[in-house]
């Protein structure tokens, strides 16, 4: 659990992060969004003390982060940045082994961990362990960057626009991977982005920042339904808010009992996707069907539309 209390950063006269407070639940994903220059990176970097705050404090599982030397703190926190920052002179395996080595792990343990992570990120260890970063594609480099951050089993993972440099298809894959891995390791994630779609897709909670202030910290649906500030609704996009809301609900959650004709959709599909499917096929209702073929219920256009209103 991360508790941020009245965290403030001033450079001379300008305050770039202004008394920000929020709490991140263990094992959840918090996304910080805001326009460029709103202080997102500064806020994130104060959590692992790459930047020392002017005032306020950060508690990690109840303990003040200043109670230990900064570099020791950082070894317990994973950190991923845009452009991944892989060490170009070290192999993929050496890159991933960085923090375990700093922590003095046994070589055998390090090797096992590297193999495990490469496999998890679908990079064949036999092919990629000894490769140099420049021999990988952009998406692979990014995955190695995340693997490296996770190497020493950190409880917290900080990510600063980690997918910013990727093209849309690879980015979508990277986002899926992140959700998958976060589920598997139960890591607490704080991720910075300026991409609202990414925020809605990944965040259990979203923090909206502007001019160094935290405008709202809430579940994504709340941002849409009860924006705390006109800026928040502008960020989330008035024209799309209904669709965004639909994209937060899965077919499995919304399915009504009963059978129906019409196209089959997976329970994990979002209502937005189901609606799109219905519009496309001209049907009135869809069947929600499990992977093993069990019918879970049905979804009508009217039912979906009802969920899109606040």
């Amino acid at each position: 659990m991360i508790t941020v209390e009245k965290l403030t950063k001033r450079y001379g006269e300008t305050t770039v992060v202004d008394e920000v407070s929020f709490t991140v639940e263990r094992g959840s994903i918090t996304v910080i969004v805001g326009t460029s220059g709103s202080g997102k990176s500064t806020l994130l970097r104060m959590i692992n003390r790459l930047i020392e705050p002017s005032s306020g404090r950060v508690l990690l599982d109840g303990r003040d982060t200043r109670s230990e030397p900064a570099h020791l703190l950082r070894r317990r926190i994973g950190y991923v940045i845009q452009g991944h920052g892989l060490f170009p002179h070290r192999t993929v395996a050496e890159n991933i082994a960085t923090v375990p080595r700093l922590l003095g792990w046994q070589e055998a343990r390090i090797e096992a961990r590297v193999r495990e992570l490469l496999t998890v990120f679908s990079l064949d260890p036999a092919v990629y362990a000894q490769a140099l970063p420049h021999q990988l594609s952009g998406g692979q480099q990014q995955r190695v960057g995340v693997a490296r951050a996770l190497a020493a089993e950190p409880v917290v993972l900080l990510m600063d626009e980690p997918f910013g440099a990727l093209d849309p298809i690879i980015r979508a894959k990277a986002q899926d991977d992140l959700l998958d891995i976060q589920g598997r390791f139960g890591t607490t994630v704080v991720l910075v982005t300026h991409d609202m779609d990414e925020a809605f897709r990944l965040g259990d909670r979203v923090a909206v920042m502007s001019g160094g202030k935290l405008l709202q910290y809430d579940r994504p649906a709340e941002l849409l339904v009860h924006p705390a500030d006109p800026f928040v609704s502008r960020m989330t996009g008035l024209a799309e808010r209904a669709m965004r809301l639909l994209s937060l609900i899965t077919a499995g959650e919304a399915a009504l009992p009963g059978a129906a004709e019409g196209p089959a959709v997976a329970p994990t599909a979002t209502l937005r996707e189901v609606l799109s499917e219905l519009v496309w096929s001209g049907a009135d209702a869809a069947r929600v069907v499990d992977a093993d073929g069990t019918v879970r219920g049905r979804l009508t256009v009217a039912a979906i539309l009802a969920r899109g209103a606040p």
Binding site: H71, L72, R74, I81, Q82, H84, G85, F87, P88, A149
Partner: peptide, 22 residues
């Protein structure tokens, strides 16, 4: 690359380790 240096600090390398190792 600034990203590499930033990542090195972010992973908890000391100043000296960043200088000598990266």
């Amino acid at each position: 690359s600034r990203a590499a240096v930033e990542a090195a600090h972010g992973m908890g390398m000391t100043d000296l380790q960043v200088l000598a190792g990266v």
